[in-house]
Nucleic acid binder design. Structure first.
Length: 878
RNA sequence: GGGAUCUUAACUCAGUUGGUUUAGAGUGUCACGUCGACAACGUGGAAGUCGUGGGUUCGAGUCCCACAGAUCCCACCA
């Protein structure tokens, strides 16, 4: 059979994914096995796969596949998030292109379009995950606005309200005038912005003169209700209690004093506009000032403003400056750079705005979640995030739950005509509740709250709701899968999502939602910018898969991304992954091409090589398992990579592969052939979590398989004991072989020309080549290998560890070069000895250092001395 | 402004409670090589004052202090 020289992924990937699905290997139902559960961080329903998802989901799939191989009942729950702001923005955009304004639609009509959109695009990202090889239990796919999920979100809201955690309050919020919604503090990005700081004159009500106020927001002057100065500011003491006239609207307002005023800034006078600034609002509360809201929700000037009514705030700003100039009320204006809040979603400048919102009190409810992370019940990986988490949780602010959107979970509150309300699931319940307060209303008279809940107010229930743990707290799934094991997500949503899930977990299950949180890095481009769709700097993951294969891309991402480290993405990582796929493919081609001789005896060389590799795999498997247990995924991958490439391909296969004579490979003995295949299968298994497709393909190619004998469900190799001495001996052999190869290269001796090698009989208890002489002979092309007692004459000498080796001079030996080389070695050895002697000659070292350290230093001294002797004798024999 | 984390080879990173030399790996780079699994390959080499400056210690990449730079979080002055 002719096998292609290179591995071609795409056909293979489609074939096996389909096969795994047909076999139901991703499906998990509760049974007697130990569960291993991950809930996916649900991507936005309308999103497409970006590099962050790739990294995230590759890690999850690695963990799930390994758990499956370890015999656990692996369950990976997929799903999507309704992402209210992002999705609503997209639907609004789509409608606009269709020539429809959102304001022309009823809520019901709009939601119909939104659901159509969701049905059309909602599945894309999940289909993309399949291309990556994600082994999710697709029968469990959830969506945060599924009927059951919707019900849970609403019921939790009602429950929290009844417990007194939710309150309704007029508060200053971050208002996004473009999206016409409130944003949480976390959704506001502060950007450096250049503005004009204008100095405006406020004329005294009585007498002549004026004071000057510096402001960047002259368009809010109409909302001024006072001018504040610092009580200790001598410049303005004579004005305390006096009135000044607000320009543009000619309103008399008092000059008040407040400690919050910075005397150094501007003129030391602050115009107080409680409706449009947080600090001003607080001053207003302290001084019982009225609130004049001069803006509409879309950022235009309201009727209250009296002038510029209906104009956009930025237009009004220009108009205000112009009019003030005309009236001679501007003293001066200067350039001013400051931080201005922008909407993360729409990039509109945030407007501090007073509005009625629903809040969740965070202090008490978040306490168990803080403790859980601090005392290690929930592990953050890497642990450096514990401090960040702690800091946030200790200073947690109340959570604004309401959003002025339609796409989402509508808040279950019912208002009567007087603005009184009840919180409950249905309008009929609300009628009853009103009646119990002696308020008579009919269902038709009640109006449900227009606002929906913040997206995170649904996704924080994810680990419970996907197992139906609210409505049916005793169902088999929730009892079996909860708490889940690992959560893999980005550090940027540690507070938005992770912290809140922990809070919900303790509040509703009395238990953590997961044990370990693996925080991935952020995928960045070469300029260090976060890769995102909006920047357009992310390569299309599907193109990468097309180019390098899913296995290659998976491996490329994992190689360079330890937990918590950002990943400056470069396609060359994927290239490395593809090259590795190819290497594995070709090692298979080698084995596959062998003719097997069932009669032949197994040569000694091969027996030794097999013994070594058995031990080597056992040793490295322990290393790999250890890396996994510490969530060091990239280290586990690197160790597996080296085990395959270096140990199996470069050393083992080279040591055992049959001679090639007269254009044909000699046959290989059956014992070695079988061992080689068994090793190969074992290595494929170890690689399978990282590279699921190629390993399944080769698993089936290497031999005939019975129905259901698939690598995805085979067993992870058992850990065996290994012989450390034997491994050390082989390491020495490797060094020796490298040294001889190096010698050939330096001396320009062809690898094809056999050499003789003499080795001084090693002292007892030192590492020696053991029984691997035949492998040395073969891989270094040595025709004679002898152990001797006296240094031979006319030889090049070199040391490998403490092993003294000699190769007889060939015809063209440069004695000066030899001398120079040995001289260098001597200098190094003497330098080393000196550093050791410095330690050993130091009385304080002797008296303070641990005995085993002194012993090891002493041994170093002895070794170094004998090494120096050997080099000297080699030099003198030149 | 407050806080956290980080800074090791050209790049991406290891380096466990201070104690194996004169600090490692993968990639890249350089030299040689087409030797019948693989040039998407093989063999070999070069490459780092461990951000800077102090300190503790017999001993510091590792602990402490200061400074510089990077990233993130929190707060925010009109």
């Amino acid at each position: 059979m002719e096998i292609a020289k290179t591995y071609s992924p795409s056909a293979t990937e489609n074939k096996w994914y389909k096969y795994w699905m047909e076999k139901g290997y991703f499906r998990s139902v509760p049974d007697d096995r130990e569960p291993y559960t991950i809930v996916i961080p649900p991507p936005n329903v309308t999103g497409v796969l970006h590099m962050g998802h790739m990294l995230n989901n590759t890690i999850q799939d690695v963990m799930i596949r390994r758990a499956r191989l370890l015999g656990k009942n692996a369950c990976w729950v997929p799903g999507t998030d309704h992402a209210s702001i992002a999705t609503e923005a997209k639907v609004v955009h789509m409608l606009r292109e269709m020539g429809i304004k959102k304001s022309d639609l009823s809520r019901e009509e709009f939601l119909k379009y939104a659901w159509q959109w969701k049905e059309k695009y909602g599945g894309i990202i999940l289909e993309q995950l399949k291309k990556l090889g994600a082994s999710c239990d697709w029968e469990r796919t959830s969506f945060t606005m599924d009927d059951g999920y919707y019900r849970d979100v609403v019921n939790v809201f009602i429950d929290l309200y009844n417990k007194g955690f939710i309150y309704r309050g007029k508060r200053m919020v971050n208002w996004d005038p473009a999206a016409k919604t409130a944003l949480s503090d976390e959704e506001v990005l502060f950007k450096e912005t250049r503005s004009k700081l204008v100095y405006v004159k406020y004329i005294y009500e009585e007498g002549n003169g004026y004071l000057t106020v510096a402001t960047v927001r002259p368009e809010t002057i109409m909302g001024d209700v006072a001018v504040a100065v610092h009580p200790d500011d001598d410049r303005y003491k004579h004005l305390h209690g006096k009135n000044v006239i607000v320009p543009l609207v000619n309103r008399a307002v008092p000059v008040i004093t407040d400690e919050a005023i910075d005397m150094e800034f501007g003129t030391g006078c602050l115009k107080v506009t409680p409706a449009h600034d947080i600090v001003d609002y607080e001053i207003g509360l302290r001084h019982n000032l009225p609130v004049i809201d001069t803006l509409n929700e879309d950022g235009t000037i309201s009727k209250e403003g009296q002038v510029f009514v209906g104009l956009d705030r930025f237009v009004a700003r220009k108009m205000a400056i112009k009019q003030l100039e005309e009236e001679g009320l501007i003293e001066k204006s200067e350039d001013y750079t400051h931080q201005v809040g922008h909407s993360e979603r729409t990039n509109a400048v945030i407007e501090p705005r007073l509005s009625m919102q629903w809040y969740l009190k965070m202090k008490d409810i978040s306490k168990p979640a803080l403790d859980a992370v601090v005392n290690g019940e929930v592990n953050l990986i890497p642990s450096k995030f514990v401090n960040t988490y702690k800091h946030w949780m200790e200073n947690v602010r109340d959570w604004c739950l309401s959003r002025q959107l339609w796409w989402g979970h509508r808040i279950p509150a019912w208002y009567n005509a007087d603005g009184e309300f009840e919180v409950c699931a249905t309008v009929d319940e609300a009628v009853v509740k009103f009646k119990s307060r002696n308020i008579n209303v009919t269902a038709a008279e009640l109006k449900q709250e227009e606002d929906v809940m913040d997206t995170w107010a649904s996704s924080w229930l994810w680990p419970i709701s996907v197992f139906d743990g609210f409505a049916n707290p005793d169902n088999a799934d929730i009892k079996y899968y909860y708490p889940t094991n690992d959560l893999v997500t980005a550090p940027e949503i540690l507070f938005f999502w992770v912290a809140r899930m922990i809070i919900a977990g303790y509040e509703y299950k009395g238990e953590k939602p997961f044990t370990n949180v693996y925080l991935t890095g952020i995928v960045r481009d070469k300029q260090g910018r976060k890769m995102s769709k909006s920047l357009g700097n992310s390569p299309d993951p599907l193109d990468l898969i097309e180019k390098y294969g899913a296995d290659g891309v998976r491996m490329g991402m994992l190689l360079c991304s330890p937990a918590g480290n950002d990943l400056p993405f470069d396609e060359s990582f994927c290239e490395q992954g593809r090259n590795f796929s190819n290497k594995i493919w070709n090692s298979f081609r080698l084995i596959q091409g062998w003719k097997v001789d069932y009669e032949a005896e197994q040569p000694e060389t091969r027996k030794k090589a097999i013994t070594w590799l058995e031990n080597r795999i056992a040793e490295q498997l322990a290393v790999i398992n250890d890396h996994f247990s510490k969530y060091r995924i990239s280290d586990a991958l690197m160790a597996s990579y080296k085990l395959v490439w270096d140990d199996y391909c470069a050393w083992y296969l080279e040591a055992i592969k049959p001679e090639f004579i007269n254009g044909e490979s000699l046959p290989i003995d059956a014992a070695t052939y079988n061992a080689s295949c068994a090793f190969f299968e074992q290595l494929l298994t170890i690689l399978h979590p990282f590279m699921p497709f190629i390993t399944e393909e080769l698993w089936h190619a290497v031999k005939e398989r019975k129905e259901g004998d698939d690598i995805i469900i085979t067993s992870w190799p058992k850990t065996d004991k290994y012989d450390k001495d034997l491994l050390a001996q082989f390491e020495l052999c490797k060094s020796l072989i490298s040294e001889i190869r190096n010698y050939r290269q330096q001396k320009n001796i062809s690898p094809k020309q056999p050499l003789q090698l003499y080795i001084m009989e090693p002292a007892k208890n030192t590492v020696h080549p053991g029984d691997f002489n035949s492998i040395i002979k073969r891989l270094a092309n040595i025709s004679v290998l002898q152990y001797i007692l006296e240094p031979p004459a006319n030889c090049s000498a070199f040391l490998v560890d403490s092993l003294e080796c000699f190769i007889p001079y060939g015809d063209t030996v440069d004695k000066d070069a030899e001398r120079e080389r040995l001289q260098k070695e001597l200098e190094y050895a003497e330098g080393f000895l000196k550093s050791v002697m410095n330690k050993l000659g130091n009385e304080k070292f002797i008296s303070n250092a641990k005995p085993e350290i002194i012993a090891s230093e002493t041994k170093k001294r002895i070794d170094a001395e004998s090494k120096i002797d050997a080099i000297k004798s080699a030099l003198s024999s030149l």
